[in-house]
Design a protein around this nucleic acid. Structure first.
Lengths: 253, 253
DNA sequence: GCAATATTCTCACATTAAGAGAATATAATC
DNA sequence: GATTATATTCTCTTAATGTGAGAATATTGC
C-alpha cells in the first residue's frame, strides 16, 4: 500500500458517526505514527478536503466546492431543471434524477412538490444496483458487454438478488422494449416509481434516468399511462436539450 | 513538493472549463510523466474522487457522497431546515445559510420561494469575505484575536477593500451591537440582504449566518424592522435547537 | 475478431517518506 | 495579557518506495 492510498484512506475514517476526528484517532485508526498522521492531515487540509476545527479535523470546504462544480456543469441538471420542475408540478410527485456512476447508482437531484423536503438528503444518496425503477432502467440500458459484465460482477453472486443470466436479461430486455420501468414497494414500501432513461439520440448513450415517485395515495388519482408518457417525454426533452446545447458550443462536432 | 501534494493538486486541474480531462493533459499540466500521471489518477479513482468516463477522467462520485454526508450531519442544516423554510414562506424572500470555513465564506444552503431556483447554484457558492450581509455578519462576529488576524491577512492588503483597522473595527462593532447587518446592492445590484448570526448561547461561538435576500420590489412590501426581527428570531431558534439536540446526545456535557 | 489506444508492469536508481523526540506555535485559563 | 497545556511542525538518519522509460498487457472501437 502506497503512501498515496494511505493518505486518501484517511478520508474513509470520516463517517456518519465520526465527522469530527482528532489526529490521534486518525493515527490509531489508520495505524500511522503521530507524525505521519499529521503530515497526511496537513496535506489534506491544504487541498481543502479536510478542515481544522478547534483541534479536531473534519471534511473540508473543497468538497462542497467540487460538488458545486459538478452540479453546475452537469448537463443533466443544467438542461433538466426546468423540465423536472414542470413534471413535478403537473404530477405532484417527487422527481428524481439518477445516474450510473463507477458501477454504482447514485441520485443526483430531487425535486419535491413541497419545497423543503428532500433537498438535503437527496443528492448523493446511494441506491441499490437493481432495485427501484431508477436503478433498473439505468442498468437495463447499459450496452451489451457492459451489461453482462455488470451482471457477473455485481448481481450474480450478490445475496440481495436471485437472478440467472437468462431471467435477468429477460427483464432488462423488456424494460428496453417498453422504454420505461414501473416498480411498487421495491425501495420503500408504499411507494411507486416510474422511471425512463435519458438517452442521447445522436450517440445512443444513456446519460441518466428520470423518475416520478409517490405514495399509493398520490398514484390513485393518476392514470399510470398518462404519468408514464409524461416521464418519457420529459426524458426525451432533456436529452434533446442536452444535444442542442452541446452543438451550440462546438458546432463542428 | 511531496508526491502527496502533487497528487492532490491533480484535483485543481478540474475546473469549470475542464471537467473532463485525459491523462496526457493532466501529465502535461502538472508536469508529470505519463506513468506517474496514471499512478495518481489511479489512486484518485480508487478513492472515488475521480472517475473514468470513456477514456477521460472527471470528478468522482465520492465527492457527491462526501457532500451528502456533510449536509446530512451539519447541525445547522438538520436543525435549521424547518425554520428556514418558514422564514422563506412568511417573507417570500430567498433565505441563505452561510458559514465561515477555513478563512472563506461559503454558502451552504438556499431556500427559494420558487421551488426550482437556487438549488443547484446555491450550496458551495463562494462569497467575498466582507461584501454582502452574510459575510459581514460572519466576519464581524469572529472573536477578538481572530478578527484582527483576519483583517491583517485578508482585508488590509486586499485591493477589493479600503479599510483601516479603525474603520473596519468600527463597522464590525456596530454590527455586533445591532445583532444584524443589512446591505443594499453589495453582492448583486438590485438586491437587499438582511443577515443575523447564529450563535450558540452556551459557548458564544458563531456557527453561521442566516440571511433573507430579495430584490427591491420584494422589499418595498415589507417593513424592514419586521424582517430584521424575523431573521434574528430564526437565528436564535436555530441556535437553541442545535444546543438542545446536542444535549440530547450527550446529556453529561 | 482485429487494430488502435489506453493502462499497467518491470526494473534500476535516487528521491524522499517515515519514525522518534525535541522545538515551536497555538489555544485555553486565569 | 501572561502562563501553562496541548497541538503541530522540525530535525535527522535510515530504509522504503516513488520515479521514469519502455515493454507487456488490457480495453475499446470498428
Amino acid at each position: 500500500m502506497t503512501s498515496l492510498s494511505k493518505m486518501l484512506n484517511v478520508l474513509n475514517m470520516f463517517g456518519p458517526d465520526s465527522l469530527l476526528l482528532d489526529v490521534d484517532s486518525i493515527a490509531d485508526g489508520m495505524e500511522l505514527s503521530r507524525a505521519t498522521a499529521y503530515r497526511y492531515v496537513k496535506e489534506l487540509c491544504e487541498s481543502g478536503l479536510l478542515s481544522r476545527v478547534d483541534g479536531q479535523y473534519t471534511l473540508g470546504p473543497r468538497i462542497i466546492e467540487l460538488d458545486w462544480m459538478m452540479r453546475r456543469y452537469d448537463p443533466l441538471l443544467s438542461n433538466g431543471r426546468e423540465i423536472i420542475s414542470e413534471l413535478c408540478k403537473t404530477t405532484g410527485l417527487n422527481v428524481y434524477i439518477s445516474v450510473f456512476y463507477d458501477g454504482r447508482i447514485i441520485n443526483t437531484y430531487i425535486n419535491s412538490p413541497d419545497t423543503e423536503a428532500g433537498f438535503s438528503f437527496g443528492r448523493g444518496q446511494p441506491l441499490p444496483l437493481f432495485k427501484g425503477a431508477q436503478s433498473k432502467v439505468l442498468v437495463s440500458y447499459q450496452k451489451g458487454r457492459k451489461l453482462k459484465k455488470l451482471f457477473h460482477e455485481a448481481i450474480e453472486n450478490n445475496a440481495e438478488y436471485d437472478f440467472t443470466w437468462k431471467s435477468f436479461s429477460q427483464i432488462t430486455r423488456s424494460i428496453r422494449q417498453n422504454g420505461y420501468c414501473i416498480t411498487h414497494d421495491e425501495l420503500n414500501s408504499g411507494l411507486t416509481g416510474i422511471a425512463a432513461p435519458i438517452i442521447r439520440p445522436d450517440t445512443d448513450d444513456i446519460l441518466g434516468s428520470i423518475a416520478a415517485v409517490g405514495g399509493t395515495s398520490s398514484f390513485q388519482l393518476l392514470r399510470h399511462e398518462a404519468v408514464i408518457e409524461l416521464v418519457k417525454s420529459a426524458a426525451n426533452r432533456i436529452a434533446a436539450k442536452i444535444v442542442s446545447s452541446d452543438s451550440d458550443k462546438s458546432p463542428a462536432a
